[in-house]
Design a protein around this nucleic acid. Structure first.
Lengths: 187, 187
DNA sequence: CGAGGCCTTGACCGCGGTCAATGCCCGTGG
DNA sequence: CCACGGGCATTGACCGCGGTCAAGGCCTCG
C-alpha cells in the first residue's frame, strides 16, 4: 500500500487515520495479461491504482475496439463516467501485462468523504488534475494531425510504444492501425 | 443570487450559512455584447454563473480564433485549466450578447472549502459532472464526422445556432466556417 | 452609398479511411 | 522438430471528407 500513499501525497497529505480508513476498503489484486478487470455493462464501483503493469480503458464503437486511455505504474485508472454518474459503463478496463493493482471500493470511499474531509479533498484534487488533462487532450485531438499526435505521444510517453500493441495505440490516437503504420514508416 | 442557488441545489443543498458565505464573495456583473471578461494571459480567479446571456471560452491557435465551449443561462463557465493549476490561461471568456453574470472569486471560494465542507462538496460535484461531459465530448470529436457532430449539436443545443455566429460554431465543432456552411447547405 | 463583416459556393488538393494482399512472429499439435 | 494457423504489422490501390484559396452575395452601419 505504500506506493499508493506516496501517490496520494502528491495531492494531499493524509492523517494516519485517513490512510488506515482507505487501506481498509482496498485490496491488492493480481491479474494475468490480457484479462478484463470488470465486464462492460456494470456500474463501476472501483478505482484502481497500478503498482505494476499497464492497463487500458476501452469500449466498442460499431463493433470496433477503441482504446480510450492507458495507465502505467503509480497511476490511477477508473471509468469516471460511470463512477460519477452511477450509470452502467459501456467501457472496460483491461490489463496488458501481468499486473498488480490496488482496488479501492468507490462506494465505501464515497462514504468516507463524510467522516474524512481530507479524503474528499484528496480525490477532488486527483480528479481535478485528470479533468485538466482531458481538456488539454481535446485540443490535441481537434487541432493536430495524426502524425503530430503520434509524435507528441512518443515524446510524453515513450513507454507506450514499447509495452502496448500498435493496434491499441492507433485507436487511442483516433486513427486506424493502417494509418499509424504509414506514419511510422515515414520516420 | 437566487438563480445561482437554484443551480447549486441540483448538486448539493447548502445551509443558510454556506449560501451567505458564497454570496459574500460574489458580485453581479453586467457586460455588453462582444466584450471579454478577462484578458488572455492572466491566471483565472473567477467562476462565472450566467444569469442572462451567452458566453464562450476561446483561444488563439496559430492566430486563428478557436471556440472551446459555449455556456448559456443558468450555467457556470470557467477556465478550469487555469483555475485548478494556478497557471496563466491562454484562453479568454467572451460574452456574445449583453449579459448579466455572477462572478465568484475562486481564491476566496477555495478558502471557504476549509470552513464549509458542504461547499467543497458542491463544487466537487459540479466539476465532476463537467468532467464527465468532457470525456463524452472526446468520443464525439474522435469518432464522428463533422456532419454528425453538427446534427448532435442542433439536437442537444438548438439555441446555439440561433444565438451564436456560425464562425464560432465551426471552430467549436473543429472545422472551418466553409465546411460548416457546406454541411448546412445539404440539409 | 460604400465599406466591412459574415456566410455561401466553386475549384482543387491532401490526409486518413477502406479493402485486400503479403510478411512476420509465435504457439500448438502431429 | 517442422508445419500449419492465427494475430499483428506493413504496404499498395483507391476514394471521400474536410482543408485552402478565391470570388461573390447579403447585411448592417456610418
Amino acid at each position: 500500500m505504500e506506493s499508493l500513499f506516496n501517490f496520494f501525497n502528491k495531492y494531499n497529505t493524509l492523517s494516519k487515520e485517513g490512510e488506515k480508513a482507505i487501506a481498509e476498503i482496498s485490496k491488492i489484486v493480481e491479474i494475468k495479461k490480457n484479462t478484463d478487470l470488470q465486464p462492460i455493462g456494470h456500474t463501476c464501483k472501483t478505482i484502481y491504482f497500478i503498482k505494476k503493469g499497464v492497463a487500458r480503458i476501452y469500449y466498442f464503437k460499431d463493433d470496433i475496439d477503441i482504446t480510450e486511455s492507458f495507465a502505467f505504474e503509480n497511476n490511477i485508472i477508473a471509468r469516471v463516467e460511470s463512477l460519477f454518474t452511477g450509470k452502467t459503463s459501456r467501457k472496460a478496463i483491461q490489463v496488458l501485462e501481468d499486473s498488480e493493482l490496488i482496488a479501492i471500493n468507490s462506494t465505501q470511499l464515497f462514504k468516507l468523504y463524510d467522516k474524512f474531509p481530507e479524503i474528499e479533498r484528496l480525490f477532488r484534487l486527483i480528479f481535478e488534475a485528470a479533468y485538466v488533462g482531458t481538456i488539454d487532450r481535446i485540443e490535441g485531438i481537434q487541432f493536430h494531425t495524426a502524425e503530430e499526435r503520434y509524435k507528441a505521444l512518443i515524446k510524453e510517453a515513450p513507454d507506450v510504444l514499447k509495452r502496448v500493441p500498435l493496434k491499441f495505440v492507433a485507436s487511442y490516437l483516433g486513427i486506424t492501425q493502417v494509418s499509424l503504420s504509414r506514419i511510422r514508416g515515414i520516420r
